[in-house]
Each structure stands twice: as structure tokens, then as C-alpha cells.
Design a protein around this nucleic acid. Structure first.
Lengths: 230, 230
DNA sequence: TTTTTATGAATGAAGG
DNA sequence: CCTTCATTCATAAAAA
């Protein structure tokens, strides 16, 4: 793992050096009658190939997500997400997306409603509550629906966790039931596990490479699948 | 901010690895050219700029992508189907995921099929699609069936909510309670639609073009917005 | 800051 | 078909 990183840095340096000659000629926007060595040319080819390959993936992803109806329709519902509008300033996209969060007044009503109808929220009931909560802030039926879903699910989970813990306490440190272990570490494990897996996800390119794409982007051809493994 | 940088470096590492692979393989064709004309060099610079710019976007996109195994492909979430692991022999990482999740290629096909047949796919059609999708990853007919069921149901629900929500937003635009300040950001425009946005929206290519990124990848600098057309 | 927690939201699957 | 549940993802808020 570490030697791989060092190797990477070494290559980066090498790449940097090779680029310098080119860069000097290219500064200022006007090209002098410079001559590139074979090495430099090869380096450029490699770089373009790499870029092209990754770009092909990006194009596919973008195409794919653009064809999602619910996403496509959403884009123009919010001016901030409209490319034509958003291009005005150097805004950050991340700042724009903000998930709903109940106000204190809303939360109070929600909790009361949850106590009343312990079981099913009911579709009509959702509408009622939503209408009521609208007076205390922005809210949608989806928000209410999700809130009840999560509220019930997490109450249930907490309860089962409680039982599991008491059982475990009674048994002391004798034998740990596999069930307890699963439930205890469930949430905390998921994140780190995903982080670990994400490293592999970076190299999950074969699926994307299978998709047919125009070859106009790169004159040197695209990378083969085996090339990613080194 | 910091996590973005880390992710960026991670992506760079991946890039280097890919380049290394290419380097070892060697690039045929133009390698022995020797001298390039200014026109060719300019073309190369332009091309690299284009690729680098898009790749920078990919880096940003990766931040959202890498933590979603179900989008990147389930085979890495399930070691059994990972070629790298499976071919390596008895090398288990952890308990495999129990729930099916479509790979990116599968999703693409599914969405296309969904667009084609708006109604119920039919048992025979399901079989066809399943067979087709098998080439892109582990999948069963039940998975396909469920996917279509959910896809249809949620599209329907979202549509109805969409209408109700826009009407609600219009009515709320005039009477804004001070409680809303908690949720509102710098833009005064009503954006209750944000609640419906998924993380996929961050991957919008148009949006990613707006982001400012370091110039480490490309020695010729990144393209401006208008440069994509030329 | 960085890490942890709480929670809104997305989604595969099951029940009716 | 529709609803509901269980799990997971992602992020805002809180803690360290």
C-alpha cells in the first residue's frame, strides 16, 4: 500500500519534469516553434488517453443521470440548479442543497401525532398533518411521510437494542450472541466498511468501458481494461 | 473542504495508476513522430485542457459516487463477485450484502426499458431483461420485477406530490413565517423542491463545470465555460 | 478543525 | 397494483 503511494509520487514528479519543457513553450498563449521529444510526446499521449478514458465514463454517467425523469424535471424547478442561472457567480452547489428539518413547533405537533396514532400514519392523516404543519413552516407530505417512517423504524430499533442489551447484561460476559453483535455494530460498521470498499469502487471501470461511446474524443485510442491494473 | 482535498488526491492516485498501466503497455502509432508542428501541439494542448477539465469534474463527482456502492456496482460490495477477490482465492472481507443493487450498466438498461414499456413489462419481457442484465452482474427475475414495481409506484407518487407541492409553494411565497429563516439560505427564492433532490443532482455535468478546482492535473490550465464549444 | 451522532431521504423487498 | 418495512446513504448538528 505504501510502496504504491511512493511509486505514485515518483511518477508524478517524473511527469512534472517532463511537462516543464512543454509548459514553458506554451505559456502566454502563443506557441513558439518548439520541438517536443519523443518522451514528451509519449507523455502527452498517455495523459490524453487517461483523460479520455475517464471522460468517457463521466459522459456515460452524466447521460445516465440526465435521463432520470424525476431528476430532469427537478432541474428547472429550482433556479439555483438551472445551469443558465447558476452560471452567474461562483456559488457553491453544496451550499444550496439543504434538507428539510422540522421547526420546533412542527416537531411538537409531529410527536403528538405520533403518540396518538401509534401504528399507521394513514395517507389521509398525512395530508391533514401536512396542512396543519404548513402554518409553522415549509413542509411537504413527503417530509411528514418520511418523518413517521423514520420515527417508527428507529423507535423499533432502539427497543430491540434495549432488549438485546439487557439480555447481554444478564448473561454477563459469558457468551456473546451473534445476534447482539450484529445489531450493536450495525450502524457504526457500515460507514467504515463503505470507506474501505470505496477504494475498490475507484477501479470499477469495466462496466463503464463496456458501454459504446464515440471515439472522437481521443486520437490515441482508449485504454483497455487490463491497463487499469498496472 | 479538507475531505474534498483528500478525495481529490485519492483520485489522482488512481489516475497515476492508470497512467502507469498505459506507460508500461506503450502507446503505438504517433510515438515515433519526433517533431510536432505548432498546430499539432496546440491541438494536443487543447485536447488535454478539455480532458483535464472534465476529469476535474469527475474528481468532484467521485466524492458523491464513491460512497454509493449500489451505484458504483454491487460486485465490490459483495466480495464473492469481485473478480479481483474471487480469482485470488479464499479471501473474504466481510459478510456479503444481502440486498441486491443494480450496477450502473444494469441501471442504464433498466431505465431504458422503463421508458420503452410504460406499463407492466409482462412476465416474458421480464425474463428477457433479466437475461440481458445477467451479463452485467448478478440479478434475478424477482429483482427486475421489484425494480419495475417500485420504479412505477414512486414515479407516480412523486408526480402527484410534485403538483401539490408547487401549488403549496406558490401560496406560501407571500406568507413566510420567521421560522423559515432556519432553513433558508442566501437565496431568497423559495426552494421547497430541495427536499426532493437526491445526491445525484450533484453530478450534473453543468453544475460541476462551475466548480473551481486546482490546476494540478493539467499544465495548460483549465478551460473556461465558453471553451467547450470551440 | 476532525470525528461522532442524529436524522432526512432513497430504495429493495414483502404483504395484502 | 398499493402500502409498509428494513436497510442504507448522506449530511446537518453536535461533540471531541
Amino acid at each position: 500500500m505504501m510502496e504504491w503511494f511512493d511509486n505514485k509520487q515518483q511518477q508524478e514528479q517524473q511527469l512534472q519534469v517532463q511537462m516543464e519543457g512543454l509548459y514553458q513553450r506554451g505559456v502566454g498563449g502563443v506557441l513558439n516553434a518548439g520541438v517536443m521529444t519523443d518522451e514528451q510526446t509519449a507523455m502527452l499521449q498517455k495523459q490524453i488517453s487517461v483523460y479520455a478514458t475517464i471522460c468517457e465514463q463521466l459522459v456515460e454517467m452524466h447521460k445516465h443521470f440526465s435521463t432520470k425523469p424525476h431528476l430532469a424535471g427537478m432541474r428547472f424547478a429550482n433556479p439555483y440548479y438551472d445551469p443558465l442561472v447558476a452560471s452567474g457567480g461562483g456559488h457553491k452547489i453544496s451550499a444550496a442543497r439543504q434538507r428539510w428539518s422540522p421547526t420546533l413547533a412542527q416537531l411538537k405537533i409531529l410527536e403528538e401525532s405520533y403518540e396518538q396514532v401509534r401504528g399507521t400514519p394513514g395517507k389521509q392523516r398525512i395530508k391533514e398533518i401536512t396542512t396543519q404543519l404548513t402554518e409553522h413552516g415549509q413542509i411537504t407530505e413527503t417530509n411528514v411521510y418520511n418523518w413517521f417512517q423514520n420515527r417508527r423504524a428507529r423507535a423499533k430499533r432502539k427497543e430491540s437494542l434495549q432488549i438485546a442489551n439487557t439480555c447481554q447484561s444478564e448473561m454477563e460476559a459469558e457468551t456473546k450472541s451473534p445476534q447482539d453483535e450484529v445489531k450493536t455494530v450495525e450502524d457504526s460498521t457500515s460507514r467504515s466498511e463503505n470507506m474501505f470498499l470505496s477504494c475498490h469502487d475507484n477501479m470499477d471501470l469495466d462496466q463503464l468501458c463496456k458501454m459504446d461511446l464515440p471515439e472522437t474524443l481521443c486520437p490515441f485510442g482508449l485504454l483497455e481494461q487490463g491497463d487499469f491494473l498496472g
